[in-house]
Amino acid sequence: MTMQHLTIGRAAAKAGVSVETIRFYERRGLIEQPPKGEGYRVYPTEMVARIRFIRQAQQIGFSLREVQELLSLRADPTADCADVRRQAAQKIEEVDRKIADLQRVRAALETVVSVCPGKGGLTDCTIMAALEDGAR
């Protein structure tokens, strides 16, 4: 059984990403740039699964640096599931901090919106006044 190779365009289509995304991942060292075949680069079909793994990890919130760490764990035969679980738990803590920050921002916005008259000139706008007071 011979291993199938794909052009960058076909690999991108199968992985559900753009050609530029594949090139970006290559520049970041997340995937290896294959050697040129007959005038163009040919990607092994296994590369599609790796690209999908990277995209899925990004979609659930992992940064590219963190994805690189996950890929390193994936390639390490001595790695343990606990290592991955620890990274995911840290990501949850980070998400919780971001949610708390966004809730503070929302509360501040609700405060300034609640006292805004909603009409009249900008000189009477309490939102603009609050922003100007905060900038001093």
Rank of each mutant, 00 (worst) to 15 (best):
K14P: 02
K14S: 10
K14Y: 04
A15V: 05
A15T: 12
A15I: 05
G16L: 00
G16Q: 01
G16A: 00
G16I: 00
V17S: 01
V17L: 03
V17H: 06
V17Y: 02
S18H: 07
S18K: 10
S18D: 02
S18F: 03
V19Q: 06
V19A: 12
V19N: 07
V19T: 15
V19Y: 05
E20H: 14
E20T: 08
E20A: 09
E20L: 06
E20R: 15
T21D: 05
T21N: 09
T21Q: 05
T21I: 06
I22H: 10
I22G: 07
R23T: 12
R23V: 12
R23D: 09
R23F: 09
R23W: 09
Y25V: 06
E26G: 11
R27W: 01
R27N: 13
R27F: 00
R27H: 05
R28E: 11
R28G: 03
R28H: 00
G29W: 00
L30Q: 02
L30W: 02
I31W: 08
I31N: 05
I31M: 09
I31S: 09
E32F: 09
Q33A: 12
Q33W: 06
Q33I: 11
P34R: 12
P34F: 13
P34Y: 13
K36I: 08
K36R: 15
K36N: 09
G37Y: 04
G37T: 08
G37V: 04
G37E: 07
E38L: 06
G39D: 13
G39A: 11
Y40I: 07
Y40Q: 15
Y40T: 15
R41M: 13
R41Q: 14
R41F: 13
V42R: 15
V42E: 15
V42I: 04
Y43A: 10
Y43D: 14
P44M: 03
P44H: 14
P44K: 13
P44A: 11
P44T: 01
T45I: 10
T45R: 02
T45M: 14
E46W: 03
E46H: 05
M47N: 06
M47H: 07
M47A: 15
M47V: 14
V48L: 04
V48D: 07
A49L: 12
R50L: 12
R50G: 03
R50V: 13
I51F: 05
I51L: 12
I51Y: 04
I51H: 09
I51Q: 04
I51E: 05
R52E: 10
R52M: 04
R52D: 02
R52K: 15
R52A: 00
F53T: 04
F53P: 00
F53C: 01
I54Q: 00
I54Y: 00
I54N: 01
I54P: 02
